[in-house]
């Protein structure tokens, strides 16, 4: 049984969702051009990831397992997450307009973010309890935010740098990601946590 602190650290740094697990790469490269959009996206992911991990946790353990419908896991989770994002969007629009203005445009993008669906499956595969799942999803979402902000900061600088023609645009972004990921490899073994 892993302590919540180790789960958090593992999800945040050692097994960083983007740089080590390769989940959520589309928003990682898509919305990392500027730091302010990157921050908005990370807040949206934190919000949705936490809610999605709770809801799928209850659906799996109190609905699919008792009814012997585990094979519907994939279909059920993706539909629940898609409708959850829609509901959040409607709710925020009506009740918390300030938050909606900050997160609104990122919410539809989050539905197709494989990081959200990915961690709901990982929580089931790792057999986490509700507390562990909560800590795990917060750590993962913060790890995503960290990676995204680092990338956005670097890309703002790279825009001004002389890059060879063939590497302009996405190739240089991938090379940057490679170096960041290499740096994160250094966290492997921290407090005995393995990749």
């Amino acid at each position: 049984m892993m302590s919540p602190f180790l789960i958090f650290l593992s999800a945040f740094l050692v097994n960083n969702i983007v740089l080590m697990r390769f989940l959520g790469l589309c928003p990682y490269f898509g919305v990392s051009r500027r730091t302010d959009t990157a921050l908005g996206m990370s807040m949206g992911v934190l919000f949705v990831m936490l809610l999605a991990s709770w809801i799928t946790f209850f659906i799996y353990h109190y609905l699919l397992v008792p009814l012997d419908l585990i094979f519907l896991r994939t279909a059920a989770f993706i539909l629940v997450i898609a409708s959850l994002v829609q509901l959040i969007e409607l709710f925020l629009k009506k009740n918390v307009p300030t938050l909606y203005q900050a997160l609104g445009i990122y919410l539809p993008l989050i539905t197709t973010n494989c990081a959200i669906l990915g961690i709901t499956f990982l929580i089931i595969d790792y057999d986490y309890t509700l507390l562990q799942a909560t800590v795990f999803s917060i750590g993962t979402a913060m790890g995503f935010g960290l990676a995204l902000l680092l990338m956005a900061g670097m890309r703002e600088q790279i825009d001004l740098a002389p890059v060879p023609d063939a590497l302009k645009g996405s190739p240089i972004a991938f090379i940057t990601a490679s170096l960041t990921s290499l740096a994160f490899l250094g966290f492997a073994g921290l407090l005995g946590l393995s990749i």
Binding site: F22, L167, P171, I172, F174, I175, A177, S178, S181
Partner: peptide, 10 residues
């Protein structure tokens, strides 16, 4: 390792 994947696709 993960960094290699990014480098190859780049």
């Amino acid at each position: 390792l993960p960094p290699g994947g990014f480098l190859v696709i780049a």
